[in-house]
Amino acid sequence: MKIVKFIDVLNEWVGRIFSWGIIVLTLLAVLEVIRRYIFNAPSIWGFEVTTQIFGLYFMIIAGYGLLYGSHVSIDVFTYYISDKKKAIVDIIAYFIFFFPFTLICLWEGYLFAAKAWAIKETSMSVWGGPVFPIKTVIFVSFILLFLQGVSQVIKKIAFLRGGKTSC
């Protein structure tokens, strides 16, 4: 299962690297207070750059979250059925909910980013920094998320076929 391994490793690394974003976010928030309150010199970029990093942070690690089953779900019903039946229900749910949603968002995310790139969209404030890179994050994140879904489903199918990898 080379593909499964590749996807899992990819999201693992994306997750490991981008998790550190929280440190950056904390420091940016604290430094902005210090700059404004103590030095009376708030930055013109702090607000927007922080917001951009926030958006990047939680979106890009969505696939990593799926890899570790972090996304909230309810198991009141599936709790009582066998693991095999559960895997079948899971796979069906992936095809009804997950794949259509991620594919639509992937496509819409692509169009959304393309529009921003076409005019090299910038921020509307005095900072005026670029916003087209952050507008690409939806597209990239949903690719990662979609791939992780593929990996999860392959693992479940392997499990149904009697393979050892339970998930």
Partner: peptide, 12 residues
């Protein structure tokens, strides 16, 4: 930019 010219700071 105007605020900056007169020594004030624009806060976002």
């Amino acid at each position: 930019k105007i605020l900056k010219d007169f020594g004030a700071v624009q806060v976002n």
